[in-house]
Design a protein around this nucleic acid. Structure first.
Length: 253
DNA sequence: ATGACTCCCAGTGGGAGA
């Protein structure tokens, strides 16, 4: 199964690119974040025409997640059970025998902000729920925009970013705690080029200078670890004329 | 350098992203 994640920064703007990419890559599952679409505006018909079933959780202007799949999606869960959240950040579903959990982690803005406190509460809720999900679903994939650069090698300038948002000890501890639940960072399961990023700022010619962060991730459960075949970042869409600031990550399990 | 770019909803500006 080929499974991918892509923060598209507005599906309205990026739908033509997403359709092109689906045709070029033909993933079995694609998890989208920052669709920035209400559910009534979600392009189910266009995606079905391209061969993909879709489920979504949206809101106006901000956030929004969706799962696209060649196979029908069952047992759809929207947001974290028991965690009262007015932001659309999680959609989970079962595709074949795999549980797919698509997440758009809160940004957190700055370590001393209310948004950071919300990120920490959200992460606590995610951890508790995932621990349960893993008991129910031995074959589980957690993927999306984590807004966490797990290690210094995931940051183009670790000194400048030390203690900054995405790189704080608290965020990195949460990432390690996810691995502690029995999840494997698919990208790091393979030898990778140095300076591999999934996000580059729109400003400062950051993509041309390859100044970025690796904050989009695919984590797989122990039950899928042995079948993990590859994990790569596809930089090609970041070279489009009007790109998202994130590139897709693709894993084959 | 509280910048830079892009998106959205707005409504000729401002919040949010990372």
């Amino acid at each position: 199964m080929k499974i991918a994640t892509w923060n598209v920064n507005s599906l309205s703007v990026r739908l033509p690119q997403v359709l092109d990419w689906l045709q070029a890559q033909s993933p079995d599952v694609l998890a989208l974040q920052e669709t920035k679409l209400t559910d009534e505006r979600f392009p189910h018909a266009e995606l079905l025409n391209a061969g993909y079933h879709s489920v979504c959780l949206g809101q106006p202007t901000y956030n929004g997640v969706a799962l696209l799949s060649r196979a029908p999606l069952d047992d759809v869960q929207r947001n974290i059970p028991g965690f009262d959240d007015d932001q659309a950040r999680v959609i989970a579903a079962t595709a074949g025998d795999a549980r797919i959990i698509n997440t758009y982690f809160p940004n957190g803005q700055a370590p001393d902000s209310d948004k950071f406190a919300y990120k920490m509460r959200w992460l606590d809720a995610l951890q508790s729920w995932l621990a349960e999900e893993l008991t129910r679903h031995p074959k589980l994939v957690l993927l999306g925009d984590f807004n966490i650069a797990p290690e210094d090698r995931d940051v183009y300038d670790p000194i400048a970013w030390a203690g900054q948002i995405h790189c704080t000890p608290q965020e990195r501890a949460h990432f390690r705690q996810l691995l502690g639940l029995g999840l494997v960072d698919a990208f790091r399961a393979f030898e990778q080029p140095a300076k591999s990023w999934t996000w580059w700022d729109y400003r400062n010619l950051a993509f041309r200078r390859n100044q970025g962060l690796r904050i989009d991730h695919i984590l797989v459960s122990e039950g899928l670890r042995d079948s993990l075949q590859s994990c790569v970042i596809d930089k090609a869409p970041r070279k489009n004329e009007r790109p998202s600031d994130h590139a897709p990550v693709i894993a084959v399990v």
